[in-house]
Design a protein around this nucleic acid. Structure first.
Lengths: 321, 321
DNA sequence: TCGCGGGATAAGGGAAGGGTTATCGCGCCA
DNA sequence: TGGCGCGATAACCCTTCCCTTATCCCGCGA
């Protein structure tokens, strides 16, 4: 598998004809044909088959063409990135869990970059299980989320960043909100409305659901906690939320917190990075910033939105797809 | 630039040492060194520099290592995809704008795949300006969003899918909600709270903001319309929303729709795809499905969440990064 | 049945890629 | 100052990539 082979394949797929691809590339037609056969051999699939109307993608070809096209574009991106990096700002790549990434991180990062200047921050959303690997692969500089297991042994630093409380909220119409107190095991058979982080088994909420023995079919995943709360208003289930973020939510007036007496709600968000000398200076700067009052303030706010000129959508990051 | 060169570069960056990378790869150390110099030459940057403590990424290297690592992983993905595609389901790749992608598409696709069976649907979020290119590049099969300009000329089909109305909502505390009617030009100097689609200048909301001459610094972007509405409750600005989705929102009781008398609120969502014979059979199937009552029902609902077992986060798709 | 359009295959050659061993350069430390 | 660790370079070799021209194969329409 070669980048030029992939380039050829993508072009043929797009044009639906081997000959057109050849003229588009300015080479002879057998050149294209051979590139294609080489790719076919190395991948072990026809990828494109002849039909009366043109070349058509096989089932595998459909999948490969997406991947191949990404790779071709990434190759161009790499060259562009180098060109634009002469005297370019340092890059700070943060990954966070869904909750932090949506509710807290954008404003936090914007405030940080505004303070230190000449820094470009990118935000990725990922599952907690991948955070350590992403740091080790140098695909991320800092991870925000639950504690990374065995951090010290793996050469990672992992410091508590901030305390928060998990709350279980449900509609005022929900029968459990009418009870003065609840016990954890009463929650098992409820319907659960979670954000993507809640569907991550090694996140705090995911762990709770697992300990309760909640079956997957009782869990419904929403794009974020706001939407999950909006659904909870209907009375259809229980939404686990970050208490201080939820209190600023619009829908909180029609939801009520369950008083679960045998549940310890305290949790911590942690900040993880490579430890000691392997840590980049910019990362140290961020870590120092994160304990300032400014940062604390940003973290206690729900999503305040960010100016259009600064807006970049978060990217979902995954190592193994 | 070669995939093996990239692989070497990523490994050296991760291990911080050229020699370690060599032993990890089971080759001699000059082999690694040469691969690195070749990559350096082809990209025109040092990428990694020697320091007393190990190899350190340059500014360009930081950017390239992310890209390179993605490429390496994608190469593995391609092979895995082929292996798993023997008798695998057809792949249907949908892209949508942020609003549709968050609020409507997940449930819609889940309902479609459940109906036709043996199909795997993926959802990407993108800007409207990229949709036509994504379809032509065969990176997506179907695009949901605003109409694609010049669709017919470019060999695309673009059919209206569903009518909706844009509404402008603000807090009951907001001065404009106390007025019985409003005129468009009164809105120019307000603060605007939009979702990512609203920051896309060729989306309906983006066009409206442009026509109004709203300056970018008056626009604040939120992760989605729910969060934007939540912020609007504070009275800080105006949120443009899809009316029928907003009405099901939890926060709607504390927001009020502005009665903008000189604004035509009707818009359409369109479904775009390659036209005629270049269209895959599965796409035709989806297009037929989209006009059924089931599909209509799904589109008129706000995000109903999806079962945990089916949950896959949407991917932000971009051609040029 | 013949021509023809379009893809596959064959044969050959120049240019990289990717590997080896041997050697050099440079910062660091006893 | 002389070793030492580690990366860069040189010289060399084999394989693969990637292009060419020429030829073959196959479905299809006149």
């Amino acid at each position: 598998m070669t980048l030029t082979q992939l380039k050829v394949f993508v072009l043929v797929a797009r044009l639906g004809s081997l000959k057109q691809a050849a003229t588009a590339l300015g080479v002879s037609e057998p050149a294209v044909s051979q590139a294609l056969t080489a790719l076919r051999q190395s991948l072990g699939d026809q990828l494109l088959t002849r039909t009366p109307t043109g070349m058509e993608l096989t089932s595998a070809g459909q999948r490969v063409v997406s991947i191949a096209s990404q790779m071709v574009h990434l190759a161009e991106d790499a060259e562009a990135a180098v060109r634009q990096s002469q005297g370019a700002p340092d890059l700070l790549r943060i990954v966070a869990t869904s909750t932090i990434g949506h509710a807290v991180a954008p404003a936090l990062l914007q405030s940080f970059t505004a303070r230190v200047g000449h820094v470009e921050a990118t935000l990725g959303i990922t599952e907690t299980a991948e955070m350590a690997a992403l740091l080790h692969e140098r695909l991320a500089d800092v991870a925000l989320g639950p504690a990374v297991p065995n951090a010290a042994r793996d050469g990672l630093s992992c410091e508590p960043l901030m305390r928060y409380r998990i709350a279980f909220v449900a509609s005022v119409k929900h029968r459990l909100t009418r009870m003065s107190e609840t016990r954890v095991r009463q929650l098992t058979d409820e319907r659960w409305l979670v954000d993507p982080e809640g569907s991550d088994p090694s996140s705090p909420v995911g762990e709770v659901l697992e300990q309760l023995g909640v079956t997957p079919e009782r869990i419904t995943v929403f794009a974020n906690q706001s939407t999950a709360c909006a659904a909870a208003v209907e009375g259809t289930g229980i939404a686990p939320v970050v208490e201080h973020l939820w209190q600023r939510e619009a829908s909180s007036s029609r939801l009520r917190k369950l008083n679960v007496v045998d549940f310890t709600a305290e949790r911590f968000w942690y900040v993880s990075a490579l430890a000691g000398d392997r840590r980049r200076p910019l990362v140290a700067k961020l870590q120092r910033y994160l304990v300032t009052p400014d940062a604390m303030h940003a973290m206690h706010q729900a999503d305040g939105g960010i100016p259009r000129s600064k807006f970049k959508p978060p990217i979902y990051v995954t190592l193994w797809s």
